[in-house]
Amino acid sequence: MEADPDKVFKALADPGRRLLLDRLHAENGQTLGQLCERMVMTRQAVTKHLKVLEEASLVVPIRRGREKLHYLNPVPIHEIAERWIGKFDRGPLRALADLKKALEGGTDG
């Protein structure tokens, strides 16, 4: 199933949803309860955000017994990167990103 780019961009536009994706990237296959831990939003808000992420195919829920586990699906992000960044030479882009990171003294995430 191919992801709708509009839904992917909409899903990625919200910082709360990006945080949920970061949490799944760090530890894939989490329950709703696990995802709600350390979040500054209600369980209902997390549920709504997960629904948007699922509709954008960024999160795939899988039932395991009574649990519903949520898994990150990076394919829609990769497709966007290929479409919008893949047109350009990745070497210079990577060099600029590395330089920016070094100058800012930043870390990944």
Rank of each mutant, 00 (worst) to 15 (best):
R66M: 08
G86Q: 03
K68S: 11
E54Y: 01
R63D: 11
D6V: 14
E79F: 05
R17M: 05
L99D: 09
L72G: 09
L12H: 04
V40H: 11
A45R: 10
K10Q: 08
L32C: 04
M41F: 04
G33C: 00
T42Y: 03
Q34Y: 01
M41T: 09
R66Y: 08
W84C: 11
A26P: 00
R83H: 13
V46R: 04
G109Q: 06
N28T: 09
V60C: 13
K48D: 10
K87G: 14
A95N: 11
E2C: 02
I62C: 13
V75H: 10
L93S: 08
P76E: 05
R23P: 01
F88L: 14
K68W: 00
V46E: 04
A97G: 12
D89M: 04
R83S: 13
C36V: 08
A56Q: 01
G16S: 03
A102Y: 02
Y71S: 08
L20G: 09
V59M: 04
K101Y: 01
G29S: 07
A26Q: 15
D98N: 11
E2S: 14
V8K: 01
E37T: 14
R18E: 03
I62V: 15
K51Q: 12
K7S: 12
K7C: 06
S57T: 10
L32D: 03
L12N: 07
R38L: 13
N28Q: 06
L72F: 15
A95M: 13
D4T: 03
M39S: 10
G109I: 03
T31Y: 00
L35S: 06
H70K: 02
G33V: 01
T107C: 08
G33M: 01
A45L: 03
H78N: 11
Q34K: 12
V59S: 02
I80H: 06
L50Q: 01
E27F: 12
V52W: 01
A95T: 14
I80A: 13
V8L: 06
A81P: 00
L72V: 12
E27H: 14
K10C: 02
E37G: 06
F9C: 04
P92A: 09
D14V: 06
A45T: 15
V46P: 02
L35Y: 02
K101D: 02
D98R: 13
P61V: 12
E55W: 00
P74I: 14
R23E: 10
L58A: 10
E37Y: 05
A102H: 05
P74D: 11
R23K: 15
R83F: 07
G16Q: 05
V46I: 07
A97D: 04
H25R: 15
L53W: 02
P74G: 12
V75W: 09
E37D: 13
T42I: 05
G106H: 02
L99Y: 09
I62Q: 14
D14H: 13
A56S: 02
H70E: 01
R63H: 14
P74V: 15
V75C: 00
L35H: 02
L19D: 11
H25A: 15
G91P: 01
L58G: 11
K101A: 11
A26H: 12
R64H: 12
K100S: 08
E104V: 07
K68G: 07
L96K: 09
V46A: 12
A102G: 06
L93E: 05
E79C: 11
R90L: 15
L35D: 03
E55F: 00
L32P: 05
V52Y: 00
R66C: 02
P76Y: 07
Q34A: 15
D22W: 06
G86V: 05
F88I: 07
D4H: 04
K101M: 13
